[in-house]
Amino acid sequence: MSPDKLVYMANQIGKFFTSQPGDKAAAGIANHIAKFWEPRMRQAIQAHVAQGGGGLDPEVLKAVESLPKVN
């Protein structure tokens, strides 16, 4: 899957959770991605992060890094 599109989608999710009170944004983003993204999508975004994760907002990057590795 095109990393650009996934980065865009992940940042969109990130914008919602970073606007919520408290400091649970990364957890919220990670939970959302785990709940709704098919493994191929998670694998692709993890691969993108492995190559530096360019374009991902900081909390989103943190969230993706916290996801269990998809093989």
Binding site: M1, K35, F36, W37, E38, P39, R40, M41
Partner: peptide, 9 residues
């Protein structure tokens, strides 16, 4: 146990 693909996905 993993979610599947949505239509756009």
């Amino acid at each position: 146990r993993e979610p599947g693909l949505r239509i756009p996905n």
